[in-house]
Design a protein around this nucleic acid. Structure first.
Lengths: 210, 210
DNA sequence: TGTTGTGAAGTATTTCACAGCC
DNA sequence: GGCTGTGAAATACTTCACAACA
């Protein structure tokens, strides 16, 4: 129950939750062995991950699936909904906006911004696209907590700084730069090119090892 | 020059390369200090990362920017082009297909697949969308090496298995499941919900720590 | 002199193995 | 008997610190 959670543990918690949701045994118990099999890890790892936060299981029995789900949702902070703003109404922005898993997990898009005048005022679903000029105003008015940056690298830093200034709590960044923000505002980077490069790296190395 | 490269090192190599490309000093030298500043790491880490693969710098001087770029591209396996197939012609697929950084890094989309009959035969750019029925045939005929899965979780495993069977070398997986494939075929997962959950986790924990 | 390359030291994370409880 | 929770051991990764050398 201490306070130093490895980043990797957090990722695995998400997997455990998804695992519980995907398997139909919403009633009944689940063992660390089963959770491990689904999440591509070990039973000991599952138990260690959970033990950082308390005791969720019963010795000799395992974990109550329904209860564990609920606990995981609380831990991950998704036992509530989050107000999200999307910056960048391009292809990636659209894909994210329409991504059903977001809404079903409680991430609610309450504002969309773009700098392109031809897009401003048009609507996606029930959201009309706002100009970046009114960014701070809208962020505060709608109590936005998370910002998704789906804009090019050269404007990402500026928008990130403005978002922090406006009181946003976290940033999901698709722009291929490392954002400079205060340590108390977490940033998660998604960099698609790096993922592809990690693949070609592994393939290339493997061939050389033969 | 050994053979046990941390996964994190690979990610950082990509950052170093992007760093070199973003800074205009394509001629001249770069120090580990400078690379570290851009990549949000330490100078020692930069040197250790590179030392796994050989000696790229000159003591007292630093690294020759142009040479180091070239070496990094070779290490990452992007000193060539890769033939990529996109499976899933939905919003995410479209965003990826139009993502300029892919093509500029040498990832060439040579086939698009979808299961929706109304999409089959229509074209995106110069690629017409193929049915999954002809998957193996097209993969082999066009020498596809990498597959990007931008399809729902329930069909992802089947397509992944067929891709491996057809001789694909690596998979970039956007479906929220852990794919079961032989160890010699690397898989990189991109899971957008997990990234958001990592954010809400951190924000939630932080608030409780006060 | 200035900066790399690298063993050795220090941290962090994972795995082991078993006591404790159902 | 079975399975969790957890210190202790093992492994992996990062940082230090300094010899080597342009």
């Amino acid at each position: 129950m201490n306070r130093k959670i490895p980043q990797s543990t957090v990722r695995r918690l998400s997997h455990y939750l998804r695992s519980l949701e995907s398997f139909p045994k919403s009633e009944g118990t689940v063992s660390s062995e089963e959770l491990a099999a689904w999440g591509q890890t070990t039973a000991a790892q599952v138990r260690k991950d959970l033990s950082h936060f308390g005791s969720f299981g019963k010795r000799g029995l395992g974990y109550q699936a329904g209860e564990l789900s609920k606990s995981l949702r609380t831990l991950l902070g998704i036992d509530r909904s989050w107000k999200v703003a999307l910056v960048g109404a391009g292809r990636i922005g659209l894909a994210l906006y329409e991504y059903p898993a977001f809404r079903s997990r409680g991430y609610d898009c309450v504002a969309i911004f773009d700098s392109d005048p031809s897009k401003i005022g048009t609507a996606w679903g029930d959201q009309s696209i706002c100009a970046l000029e009114v960014f701070e105003e809208v962020i505060k008015e709608r109590d936005v907590e998370l910002v998704i940056l789906a804009i090019p690298a050269d404007s990402a830093q500026e928008v990130a700084s403005r978002a922090v200034e406006a009181g946003v709590n976290g940033i999901l960044n698709f722009a291929p730069i490392r954002l400079n923000v205060p340590a108390e505002v977490p940033v998660e980077d998604v960099n698609l090119v790096i993922e592809l490069e990690a693949l070609s790296f592994q393939i290339t190395q493997r061939k050389q090892d033969v």
